[in-house]
Design a protein around this nucleic acid. Structure first.
Lengths: 148, 148
DNA sequence: TGAAGTTATATTGCGCGCGATTAAATCGCA
DNA sequence: TGCGATTTAATCGCGCGCAATATAACTTCA
């Protein structure tokens, strides 16, 4: 009875949404941003902006290029996002005097201060996900392999 | 030596990008769409459009609402996407005469034909991912739980 | 030195996602 | 019947992602 809903043609079966890793990933990622939204709204951040702040909280200043490397995003995504963070007073941007091609992004005082508020987020998310920590870690590590 | 890079403050540790399931998911999902892009370009589809076509190939016609339920998307995303698919000649849209609130989306002949071309995609992706089928299935099922 | 090649960021255009709102059709029920 | 509530799509605005392109700064090397 294991072939209850299985077509005899494997290429037909493979096209079913339910069998697609890509859709599971797509759906899970969309859900995740929706789950974060209420928490991030309270901090005035979007989800990608939050990821940028995570990188900067870990180590700053960084160049736009270094941020892009960490997040696997390019300048066409980051430049406007960073301008919005700058307009919000969370980061400062200036050309590197050593090499005027580079733009150095640093946290402002407000940006640094926001970290205290952010510290509560991971725990709230872990609760919201309702998964064991080891399940989360396992999934995370497998996804990293996928994003290699 | 297990605490090599560990801060003594767990809330600091939890904020590191590398420890975030959300970022692993975000990165993996972005990578996935980039991996699909060259294959889908050849078919004239974007990644979300491909997902819509997967749903329709499985069962059509469907209402906009039913598509949204299957994909966890709402009409503000689907309506413009479906109009583009219609403009590309892959689907037809018309109001349900039974209930004029509903819009019924059906495959055109070209849309149905495109399925033959799509049949090659899952295998190509599995190769590109370079993962065992059981690893893919396991990951997929765990992501579905996350997107519950 | 200076012209060609390379690197770093910015700009443009397009297609999502989604919150908020609107508009129209249908339903429920007094 | 008729009117308020509900359902279904569509519309609008904004912020990504990213391909393609542009621009400016640096490097190389003849």
């Amino acid at each position: 009875m294991s072939k209850n809903n299985a077509s005899s043609d494997p290429s037909v079966e493979a096209l079913k949404l339910d069998n697609q890793l890509c859709f599971a990933l797509y759906g899970a990622a969309n859900r995740m941003t929706r789950l974060y939204r209420p928490l991030l709204d309270a901090m005035g951040l979007t989800y990608p902006q939050y990821l940028v702040m995570l990188v900067l909280w870990e180590s700053s200043p960084r160049t736009v290029g270094a941020l892009g490397e960490a997040l696997d995003l390019d300048s066409s995504t980051l430049t406007p996002l960073l301008k919005r963070l700058e307009a919000a007073g969370l980061v400062e941007r200036h050309r590197d005097p050593e090499d005027e091609r580079r733009v150095i992004v640093d946290l402002s005082e407000a940006g640094r201060a926001l970290r205290e508020q952010a510290k509560a987020i991971p725990e709230q998310m872990i609760c919201a996900l309702d998964l064991q920590m080891d399940a989360i870690s396992t999934l995370r590590e497998r996804l990293k392999v996928l994003a290699r």
